[in-house]
Design a binder for these strands. Structure first.
Length: 647
RNA sequence: GCCGUUGUAGCUCAGUGGUAGAGCGCUUCCUUGGUAAGGAAGAGGUCAUGAGUUCAACUCUCAUCAACGGCUCCA
């Protein structure tokens, strides 16, 4: 028998008979691995365990510990869930059923069946019944005609539609018991490893994501090789709920909503407004140092402004209705973006190349209509404040300007310990380039500049082709919230369109008129979303420089309230902020309440402290830092804030 | 906007076809205390809103509004 060379992930080389399967390889290594292996990657292609390897190859065995292993596991689970549902609801039709980040879903047309969470239990039971019976996944290559024939007969028009889009000769079915599905695979060998399953939610989902087509029922599920892992996962979800910014925002009295004010319109309460102001002031300071000028523009703008910018044509119909003046019938729009206003500022006087770059910054509140079902706490609202700025520069300056912006973004992320962000560079479609405005030369220059800057800065950015806006390439920053949803925060966008539309110019050294390039940028993205994500990130334990209260003073008894007041005044004179718990409660109680309120420093004052002019310091979390003078404590806070700000 | 779930005291939640309950919080009083809950009393609710069924609706039905989980869209 002919031998082939298999390179394993640890770099070791082993010889096997030609036609060896990943399962056999796993088995040759250890019984344990053979029991746990879910799928394999052969030369970077994920395959099933029965895949016959016919030439020298790199093989990685995938277990539950690998994302790709989990995905195969979940994808197979999706099939079993579909099988369970088909048995319980004969005649339903199936759309697609992929694995997702955590678990999987299947889009199903339930025909006349009504389905709700009361049905979950029986589907789960049926699922486990099938899984326990150790059903094998059998791969079958079929011709397009056969495939179409099968699903036409079954009456599943969704699968027929999918098959019609496929090339003949590449179509495979997977059979698991009596359920046959169109599927590229790969799959588990059999269902015996799927030990736990739960339907997590159901939702409507348009067929092929198209609002105009039929809405199917998307059934979300998650499965695990061990029952305990399911329990752990559910516990983790419970834990994550405690970090939810909507819950924390209410508890810490940072912001609120009122349906009487209007849905999706956040209201910042005093403590939240103060916190936001600290963030804004911090960024203003950085921007001042980086040569930005602060501007302020109105919350509405004449409809013609947005006709010039193009926003009206694109968003006019899907936005708040225009505001009209009673006498003249002029139309105004609530500002959906700040850029048109800033373009007007740029255009307000002649500019020389010596004036560039011109950096105009504004914490500009914008208003956008979002569908009611889309609103979500502070992360998706109808009125929000962008930490916006527009940089007008020459093509030569683009790269440095981009780099300058990126530095600000990264500094903010570093300071707030946002280590798990993802950066995405969005470039033009590689093939279809008709839809992009701006010269080929400028685009190339800008795209290259972004790539170079990312490299020089050492950030780990994913490049996505075809994701650029029609007006220019961009770089976005995404951060996950407590439940794992991704939100876009910062963005840096190059724009050739608006300078064109507003006919912006500068006089070059050649005494000719040139068109500047514009960069839109918002390091936070929006103050609302940023604070939401920050709140979830730190679970309400804000860094000291941001915390609404930096300390709370707990008098041991009301004999020491006067002393507490004198300390508070001293600290306020040094621009530290805090409060006093004057309730007639025992110290243990006051400490507990202060801990629950996430007070960074708890200062106990009683007889000892009063007679010595000191405070007893306890840090949030229970660390006793001993007794110190008030000046020492002020110094302690200042040093900590300084350290945080210099990260 | 669409699909599904939910809506009872400031918060977290019980509850029943015969016009409401707990814990926490709040108010008052007692207690004046040393590193995560001292004691007692009291106030507080058109049971989201509107219609319908019924002798009777917080409970059943429908509609509306809002919140929550998704879908299309986006900071």
């Amino acid at each position: 028998m002919e031998k082939i060379n298999i390179t394993l992930t640890d770099g070791s080389l082993k010889q096997f008979d030609n036609g060896v399967t990943p399962y056999q390889i796993a088995h040759s290594i250890s019984d344990g691995l053979a029991r746990n292996v879910l799928a394999a990657k052969v030369d970077d292609v994920v395959v099933g365990l029965d895949f016959a390897i016919n030439n020298d190859a790199k093989v990685a065995l995938l277990t539950w510990n690998e994302e790709e292993g989990k995905h195969v596991f979940w994808h197979s689970s999706a099939h079993i869930m579909a099988a369970a549902i088909e048995q319980l609801y004969p005649g339903v039709k199936f759309g697609i059923g992929p694995a997702v980040e955590t678990g999987f879903y299947y889009d199903i047309d339930f025909m006349d069946y009504k389905i709700s969470d009361t049905d979950f239990k029986k589907i789960e039971d049926k699922f486990l019944e099938i899984a326990r019976s150790k059903v094998q996944f059998v791969r079958k290559e079929v011709s397009k005609a056969e495939a179409l024939d099968y699903f036409t007969q079954k009456g599943d028009e969704y699968k027929v539609e999918l098959i019609n889009d496929l090339e003949d000769g590449t179509i495979t079915f997977y059979e698991s018991g009596c359920f046959t599905d169109l599927c590229r695979g790969p799959h588990l060998h059999d269902t015996s490893m799927i030990k736990a399953f739960k339907i997590t939610s159901i939702a409507g989902a348009y067929w092929r994501g198209d609002e105009k087509r039929k809405q199917l029922v998307r059934v979300y599920g998650v499965s695990f090789p061990k029952a305990k892992e399911l329990a752990d996962y559910l516990a983790l979800l419970e834990e994550a709920k405690k970090r939810d910014h909507r819950k924390l925002g209410k508890e810490l009295e940072l912001f609120m909503f009122s349906s009487r004010v209007g849905v999706g319109l956040p209201i910042w309460l005093p403590r939240g407004a103060d916190l936001r102001a600290r963030l804004e002031n911090f960024l203003k300071k950085i921007q001042r140092e980086a040569g930005y000028s602060q501007v302020i523009t109105p919350h509405i703008g004449n409809v013609n402004l947005y006709k010039t910018s193009g926003h009206y044509q694109k968003y006019g119909q899907d936005s708040f209705r225009p505001i009209t003046t009673p006498e003249e019938g002029e139309e105004y729009f609530l500002k959906p973006m700040n850029c048109p206003h800033h373009c007007e500022i740029y255009a307000s006087k002649p500019r020389s190349y010596k004036d560039l770059p011109c950096r105009l910054a504004e914490f500009g509140t914008v208003y956008r209509y979002e569908q009611s079902g889309e609103l979500h706490g502070l992360t998706r609202v109808r009125s929000f404040t962008q930490d916006d700025a527009h940089i007008f520069c020459t093509p030569e300056q683009l790269k440095d300007e981009f780099k300058g912006v990126l530095k600000i973004v990264l500094r903010i992320f570093r300071m707030l310990d946002f280590n798990e962000y993802t950066a995405q560079i969005s470039l033009r479609d590689k093939v279809n380039r008709d839809k992009y405005i701006g010269s080929e030369e400028n685009w190339q220059k800008a795209e290259q500049a972004i790539i170079d800057v990312a490299e020089e800065t050492g950030i780990n950015a994913v490049v996505e082709y075809g994701e650029a806006a029609f007006y220019g390439p961009k770089m976005d920053f995404m951060v996950k919230d407590a439940i794992g949803r991704k939100w876009q925060l910062g963005t840096i966008q190059v724009d050739y369109n608006l300078p064109e539309r507003f006919e912006l110019e500068y006089t070059g050294s050649d005494n000719l008129k040139h068109r500047p390039i514009m960069i839109h940028r918002a390091p936070f993205g929006s103050m609302e979303r940023f604070v939401a994500v920050l709140l979830e990130h730190c679970a309400g334990d804000f860094p000291l420089w941001l915390a609404p209260d930096q300390f709370i003073i707990l008098p041991i008894s009301d004999k020491y309230i006067d002393y507490a007041n004198s300390i508070k005044s001293k600290m306020e004179a040094k621009e530290l902020r805090g409060c006093i718990d004057t309730r007639a409660e025992k110290t243990g109680r006051k400490i507990r309440d202060a801990e629950v309120k996430k007070m960074p420093y708890i200062l106990l004052v009683g007889e000892n402290e009063q007679s010595n002019g000191t405070v007893s310091v306890r840090k949030h979390g229970g660390v006793d830092m001993g007794t110190m003078t008030i000046d020492e404590f002020i110094d302690l806070i200042n040093k900590e804030v300084e350290k945080e700000l210099s990260k």
